[in-house]
Design a protein around this nucleic acid. Structure first.
Length: 759
DNA sequence: AGGTACTTATAGAGT
DNA sequence: ATAAGTACCT
């Protein structure tokens, strides 16, 4: 029987298929498993997959869950609507776009596009971008949108207006209004619009409300603690007819309030659905007792929480490991050594390790040292592939072809690669478009020589528009790859990078080719539904058009990207990105005050509690071993900073550390706890440690000629990392050195080829 | 118009 | 450290 795979509480939660259900699931308690079996069970009971809506936190999670369900109950599961809030409702909006006066190929703006639009508005209204920092303005707008506050609501809202006046930015409401006007004119939506407009659709079109209530008779929401008001209301409306709503979450893992997530949604579920079944999953199957208990001891410090007792019957396991380092380089080296030692002694694989951090910047020093140790890794957050300039440029061409009204895309590529169209002509064109109340693209297409633009430049503008117009006509008759390939070729963008002498430029050309590969992969893939989940239409290669690709890509995160089968790598990511994942060995680095907890959060209890939940999430990713580290000094924005170790370290019940690494009373002087660093805190190693020496040393070192090497010299090798020369033999080109590497033991190297560097 | 050199800001997490 | 923006030169 299908549900035999679940424990008693999980099974009970899966079996109550009708009505409202809340599953409060502690970390590692088999939440995804329960959801998966619950959906499989629904299908076994005869529920039509077209009637199931399952909302997950990442698209990757959706894909994995769907694959698992398919393996349990067969291919009919493909037709379940499963994905993130944003991707699912983008599909619905695409189908219903004309109700809202949008074209179905509307563009989705990401935060960079949104910031660019705000910058343009500031420029046009002569507002100071220092006062009206685009990032800040966008976050105000975003918070308003995710609370369903429209621009006119904003301008009428006394509290918001007072706040903006107090911060000396009285025009944010007006910027919001203009921002929305321009988005609409460009036939574009930002992330929050996908949810906002879905709400409008359900509010203003009763037939659609009924249609989707009827379609989505069974609704499941994962990570419910991280939903915002806008998402909450969509779900509430959709579920209002049949009442079959199942939410899963853990208030202790709510970490997205900055994005408007409202922890009250889960805390108040019982108020909305008084008859709901509540199930608590408290048995942790993931981690050792040490990890579970240590994490519990930390989260107990929070005041706001649903009471529950997470426990495990797993073995006690290792004590938590901790190392205090001089600086971020030494921290990275410590992590590398710990990884290598486990690889060699415990038969672990690189994919068993994750290095988690609070801020994306921290990945850079880790990266440098991982490369030195020749440890394969993958970064799952930070500047994603799709954020790179060259990729955004190509995507802007695609966007403009699919949606001619997309002015931001137009401005991005009108003169890139350069085609002799400068600021003067572009400003003139903007004025023309404004006068005619049309898009920049249309203005360009219909440019006449009486328009006041130099004839030669005007011709270039018209040529540009005509070139793209040809693709617009074709875009729905060809698959995404065929047309994408042509656009890239014709726009000269690859040629531009290939001819550029800068060494980084050939990488950019390669990236564009990789993007085209991704487009091809999209066209050829059949992993998704065979039938369109909304229309029931068959999906074939002809449906895989460029606009569909764009819509998919704009909602994809780095975590969702394919790893091309190369999965034997250490994972690097922020703690936020690690939510929902698990690894045998987890490093949490940068355990320092002002970094984690972040300096922005330490003034308010509510923010600090969220930060503490974040640490709880980090700890509970670990299955067998948890390793923490901090650095006494660290470069940030090119400046050296000194921080005390994080208060969170002392909040862990000290019995879960080895005796010798328990925290003493926190000292006021950041240097006072320095002497007991590496030697004492590092566990026994199989490699000869050189950590007793005062560090840091520059990483990388300098190349030297063969004669300069001597026995006892500290050297670095591209592959083997740091080592010390223990013997030299031979002369001239045949000179060989025996080097004892920290991580790879003794190697004999021919100096002429080894490219050893002095450190 | 387009490229180069200098200046300045950067605050955190990401659909 | 890095990117983006500005001033200035060709």
């Amino acid at each position: 029987m299908l549900l035999d795979e679940l424990n008693q509480e999980q099974r009970a939660a899966a079996q109550q298929t009708e009505g409202a259900v809340m599953i409060v699931a502690g970390a590692g308690s088999g939440k995804t498993r329960t959801l998966t079996y619950r959906i499989a069970y629904l299908l076994e009971k005869g529920v039509d997959p077209f009637n199931i809506l399952s909302l997950t936190f990442t698209n990757k999670a959706a894909k994995e869950m769907k694959d698992r369900i398919i393996s349990l109950v067969g291919p009919k599961a493909r037709n379940i609507m499963m994905g993130t809030f944003h991707s699912v409702f983008a599909k619905v909006l695409r189908a219903e776009a004309e109700r809202l006066g949008y074209i179905s190929t509307f563009t989705i703006y990401d935060s960079d596009d949104s910031k660019g639009l705000i910058k343009n508005i500031l420029k046009d209204h002569s507002l100071d971008p220092k006062t009206y920092n685009p990032g800040y303005v966008l976050s105000r707008i975003s918070k308003a949108k995710s609370s369903l506050i429209s621009p006119s609501d904003y301008l009428d809202n006394q509290q918001l207006m007072t706040e903006d006046k107090a911060s000396n930015k009285p025009y944010i409401g007006n910027i919001y209004q203009e921002y929305n006007n321009r988005l609409r004119k460009a036939m574009s939506m930002d992330f929050d619009d996908l949810l906002f407009n879905m709400n409008i659709l359900l509010r203003d079109f009763p037939d659609l409300l009924l249609k989707y209530q009827d379609k989505f008779r069974y609704i499941l929401v994962d990570e419910y603690q991280d939903t915002n008001f806008s998402q909450y209301l969509i779900i509430k409306k959709l579920a209002a007819r049949y009442g079959n709503i199942c939410v899963v979450g853990d208030d202790a893992q709510s970490i997205y309030s900055f994005r408007g997530a409202n922890i009250q949604n889960i805390l108040n579920f019982k108020k909305d659905y008084p008859d709901c079944g509540i199930y608590k999953l408290e048995q942790n199957y993931r981690s050792t007792q040490t990890i579970v208990k240590a994490a519990n001891s930390v989260i107990a410090k929070n005041r706001d929480q649903i009471k529950k007792e997470v426990w495990t019957s797993n073995e006690e396991g290792h004590k938590i490991n901790y190392n205090e380092c001089e600086n971020e380089k030494e921290e990275a080296r410590w992590i590398c050594k710990e990884i290598v030692s486990r690889i060699q002694t415990k038969n672990s694989k690189f994919q068993d390790f994750a290095i988690l951090y609070r801020t994306n910047q921290q990945s850079r020093s880790l990266e440098e040292v991982l490369r030195l140790y020749n440890i394969p890794y993958r970064i799952y957050s930070g500047t994603s592939f799709y954020d790179r300039k060259e990729i955004r440029d190509v995507l802007a061409y695609f966007r403009l072809v699919v949606n001619n009204s997309d002015d931001e895309a137009f401005l991005r590529v009108i003169n890139f690669p350069t085609r002799g169209i400068g600021d003067t002509s572009i400003n003139r064109l903007k004025i023309l478009a404004d006068q005619k109340n049309c898009s920049l693209f249309e203005a360009a297409l219909n440019l006449s020589y009486t328009d006041g633009i130099h004839a030669r430049t005007a011709q270039k503008i018209v040529d540009f528009a005509l070139m793209l117009r040809a693709y617009t006509i074709d875009v729905f008759n060809k698959n995404a790859y065929d047309i994408g390939f042509e656009i890239v070729a014709k726009s000269n963008i690859i040629k531009h990078w290939k001819e550029d002498p800068d060494p980084q430029s050939s990488d950019r050309a390669d990236n564009i080719e990789e993007l085209l590969n991704a487009v091809q992969g999209f066209v050829e893939s059949s992993e998704d539904a065979i039938l369109d989940q909304l229309t029931g239409e068959e999906i074939s290669i002809e449906n895989k058009t460029l606009d569909v690709f764009l819509q998919q890509v704009s909602l994809m995160s780095e975590t969702d990207r394919d790893d091309n089968g190369e999965n034997e790598r250490v994972s690097l990511m922020t703690i936020h990105a690690a939510k929902g994942l698990e690894f045998p060995y987890v490093f949490v680095c940068g355990m320092e005050e002002n970094l984690f907890p972040s300096i922005m959060t330490i003034v308010s209890r509510v923010d600090l509690e969220e930060e503490r939940r974040l640490f709880y999430v980090a700890m509970t990713r670990a299955q067998t071993e948890l390793l923490l580290s901090c650095a006494n000094s660290r470069f940030k924005n090119g400046q050296l900073n000194f921080n005390e170790r994080s208060r969170f370290l002392e909040e862990i019940d000290q019995q879960y550390f080895n005796e010798e690494i328990r925290m003493g009373k926190k000292s006021a002087n950041p240097f006072a706890f320095k002497q007991n660093t590496t030697e004492t805190f590092v566990p026994k190693k199989i490699f000869t440690p050189i950590v007793n020496k005062p560090l840091p040393k520059p990483i990388g070192g300098n190349p030297v000629s063969i004669e300069e090497f001597f026995v006892g010299m500290d050297v670095a090798h591209d592959k083997f990392g740091f080592g010390k020369i223990i013997a030299i033999e031979g002369t001239g080109d045949d000179t060989k050195a025996e080097v004892n590497f920290e991580a790879f033991g003794t190697k004999k190297l021919v100096l002429r080829f080894a490219k050893l560097k002095k450190i």
